[in-house]
Amino acid sequence: MRHGKKVNNLGRKTAHRKAMMANMACSLIEHKRINTTVAKAKALKQFIEPLITKSKAENNQTAEKGTHNRRIAFKNLRSKEAVTELFSAVAEKVADRPGGYTRIIKLGNRLGDNADMAMIELVDFNELYNAGKPSKKSTRRSRRSKSKAEPAKASETAASEAEAKPAAEAKKEAVAEEQKAPEKEAPKAEAPKEAKPKAESKAKDEDAKE
Score class of each variant (00 low, 15 high):
residue 2 R to N: 08
residue 4 G to P: 03
residue 9 N to K: 13
residue 10 L to F: 02
residue 11 G to L: 00
residue 15 A to L: 15
residue 16 H to K: 07
residue 18 K to Q: 03
residue 21 M to Y: 06
residue 23 N to I: 06
residue 23 N to T: 02
residue 24 M to H: 04
residue 25 A to G: 10
residue 25 A to S: 03
residue 26 C to S: 01
residue 26 C to V: 00
residue 26 C to H: 00
residue 28 L to T: 01
residue 30 E to T: 12
residue 30 E to H: 14
residue 34 I to K: 05
residue 34 I to S: 08
residue 36 T to Y: 00
residue 38 V to E: 06
residue 38 V to C: 05
residue 38 V to M: 08
residue 38 V to I: 11
residue 39 A to T: 07
residue 42 K to Y: 00
residue 42 K to A: 11
residue 42 K to F: 00
residue 45 K to C: 02
residue 45 K to S: 04
residue 45 K to I: 06
residue 45 K to N: 02
residue 46 Q to N: 11
residue 50 P to V: 03
residue 51 L to E: 08
residue 52 I to V: 04
residue 52 I to P: 01
residue 53 T to H: 09
residue 54 K to F: 02
residue 54 K to T: 03
residue 55 S to R: 07
residue 64 E to S: 07
residue 70 R to M: 06
residue 72 I to F: 13
residue 73 A to D: 03
residue 80 K to R: 04
residue 81 E to Y: 03
residue 81 E to T: 03
residue 82 A to R: 00
residue 82 A to L: 03
residue 83 V to T: 01
residue 84 T to S: 09
residue 85 E to M: 00
residue 86 L to C: 00
residue 86 L to M: 04
residue 88 S to V: 01
residue 91 A to V: 03
residue 91 A to C: 02
residue 93 K to G: 00
residue 93 K to F: 08
residue 94 V to T: 08
residue 98 P to G: 05
residue 99 G to E: 07
residue 100 G to N: 02
residue 102 T to D: 13
residue 106 K to L: 02
residue 106 K to P: 06
residue 106 K to H: 05
residue 108 G to C: 10
residue 108 G to M: 03
residue 109 N to C: 09
residue 113 D to K: 15
residue 113 D to M: 15
residue 114 N to C: 09
residue 115 A to W: 01
residue 116 D to N: 04
residue 116 D to W: 06
residue 117 M to G: 01
residue 119 M to V: 11
residue 119 M to E: 07
residue 119 M to N: 08
residue 120 I to Q: 00
residue 121 E to T: 08
residue 125 F to P: 13
residue 127 E to L: 13
residue 129 Y to L: 11
residue 129 Y to F: 14
residue 130 N to W: 13
residue 131 A to G: 07
residue 131 A to E: 08
residue 131 A to C: 12
residue 131 A to V: 11
residue 132 G to V: 12
residue 136 K to L: 07
residue 136 K to F: 02
residue 137 K to L: 13
residue 137 K to S: 07
residue 138 S to L: 13
residue 138 S to F: 09
residue 139 T to Y: 03
residue 143 R to Y: 13
residue 145 S to A: 05
residue 145 S to L: 08
residue 146 K to G: 14
residue 147 S to C: 07
residue 151 P to R: 14
residue 151 P to K: 08
residue 154 A to K: 12
residue 155 S to G: 09
residue 156 E to F: 08
residue 156 E to W: 13
residue 158 A to W: 01
residue 163 E to Y: 12
residue 165 K to N: 15
residue 167 A to F: 05
residue 169 E to C: 15
residue 173 E to K: 15
residue 174 A to N: 11
residue 176 A to T: 05
residue 180 K to R: 15
residue 180 K to N: 12
residue 183 E to T: 15
residue 185 E to I: 06
residue 186 A to N: 12
residue 187 P to A: 10
residue 190 E to I: 13
residue 192 P to C: 11
residue 193 K to L: 09
residue 194 E to D: 06
residue 194 E to G: 14
residue 199 A to N: 15
residue 202 K to L: 10
residue 205 D to E: 14
residue 205 D to S: 12
residue 207 D to C: 13
residue 208 A to Q: 06
residue 208 A to C: 14
residue 209 K to Y: 12
residue 209 K to A: 05
